[in-house]
Nucleic acid binder design. Structure first.
Lengths: 263, 263
DNA sequence: CGTGCCAGGTGCCCT
DNA sequence: AGGGCACTTGGCACG
């Protein structure tokens, strides 16, 4: 058994493996420590869907927040998992370590891991700091919100995160001629669904407008995204909407306007 | 240094830590072995977005398929990562281990991990078997495809995965009276977007039909899903479409029909 | 807590 | 390789 500096980390090598000890550590440490067990195991999952993984060598991680991950030697995503807040019970019966993990969020979900052989088992305290990501869609919306003239020189923001029956509209602008801009922002390459989404918003505003026909304004759909697929662009053009590549905004070209598109 | 059975696994405890050795093993083993390093590190990410993680204790996993994961003590998803096929370069300069990982898929993406302290480092061969998941949407579509009478007693399948400008229609059925059923299947709880999607398909088929007005059939939107949100249900009803809970199908109640909804 | 929706989404399958 | 889409999506923010 290899142990370091006041149980900051506990590492059990293959020569130290005792499944009763592991099972014991597993239960005792789970509130504070993250457990990492590497070994040959079979996995059964039953819940929203179901799966069965044959015997294979995998990494099992049980975090102190109650999330369970089972990783193989490929892919970013775990082979099997259980969401945060799940409860694992380990069991050393019949000479094999078995871990059963129940989800709290999805009451009926269960992952069972049966180890045929354990190569190493580790307990350690990991940080839970998280991080801030920049350059996200929210930032892009914020940028346009602070500088709506990138859409049209005289445009002012008249709405943000506006609720509709079909979803929330990122931004609504109005320029001096009275045109209304419905702006949908995607931080990624826009596909058909983005155009559909924008279309819904425009249609909704048009239907609202038709209920009070005293003021009738032109409603212009604007899609701001980091690229657009061919079919999406076709659908956008067919509906008479406008596409703006987000890169042309990000590089600070704030003088670029949409006036050339508006007759 | 703890090593077992012909390098099936290599475990370096804190007393064995030599960052030059680790850097060396990191480069030498990356094609076959998955590397797991636990220690205090700072992380910088720059790519589609950007992030910076302060000093914290984390697990770094570099899989043999070239995917990189950095996990903290919470959440199912990694704090930082790099997709499969990425290339990591480790560096032991200035007394600190630094790992830089570049994505092939997103050429400009880079994750840099700078270790202040390493608690343990492990190399092992993991399986890459994957698994088959059952109970997915595809299974549900297949089930209805094989047994369309669950939608309407006389219904026959006349289309599957039918391409439209707004996306693919899961199933199209026709019953003896000539009604057309546009079936959208969701394996999860359906929200507004699902209703919008269904609405698009129906509208599209209606527009197709209006082009050839010799045959005019009633087109009925059907949403099959595992639950539905309140607003989605309202929108569905307002448009005159039909909701079927997928559970009522899964439990084998194949005699249940929709005739009560069809006038 | 339900609902809606973005995500550095990822992974799969199709053309 | 690009596109469309499901996912045991996860995670967050808001009513």
């Amino acid at each position: 058994m290899v142990s370091t500096e006041g149980e900051e980390i506990i590492v059990l090598g293959s020569s130290d493996i005792d499944i009763h000890m592991i099972s014991d550590l597993f239960h005792r440490n789970s509130k504070i420590y993250t457990a990492i067990i590497i070994g040959e195991c079979e996995i059964h999952y039953q819940g929203r869907a179901s799966s069965k993984a044959p015997l294979g060598t995998r990494i099992v991680i049980y975090k102190s927040d109650g999330s369970l991950l089972v990783h193989e030697g490929k892919d970013r995503d775990p082979l099997n998992w259980q969401p945060p807040g799940s409860l694992c019970i380990s069991d050393a019966d019949k000479g094999f370590l078995e871990i059963r993990c129940r989800s709290r969020k999805y009451g009926h979900e269960i992952v069972s891991i049966r180890f045929k052989r354990i190569l190493t088992a580790i307990w350690c305290r990991l940080s839970t700091k998280g991080l801030e990501v920049h350059g996200t869609e929210k930032d892009l919306v914020e940028m346009i919100y602070m500088n709506p003239s990138v859409i049209s020189p005289s445009a002012k923001v008249i709405g943000r995160e506006v609720e509709t029956p079909s979803g929330k509209i990122d931004l609504i602008l109005r320029d001096d001629p009275g045109n209304i801009y419905v702006v949908e922002v995607k931080n990624e390459k826009a596909g058909i669904s983005a155009v559909n989404q924008l279309d819904r918003y425009v249609k909704y505003l048009e239907s609202m407008q038709s209920r009070s026909p005293d003021v009738t304004r032109r409603i212009i759909g604007v899609l701001v995204s980091n690229g657009i697929t061919r079919r999406a662009r076709e659908a956008l053009i067919e509906r008479g909407y406008i596409y703006i590549d987000s890169m042309s905004l990000k590089i600070g070209n704030t003088s670029q306007t949409l006036m050339k598109y508006v007759k």
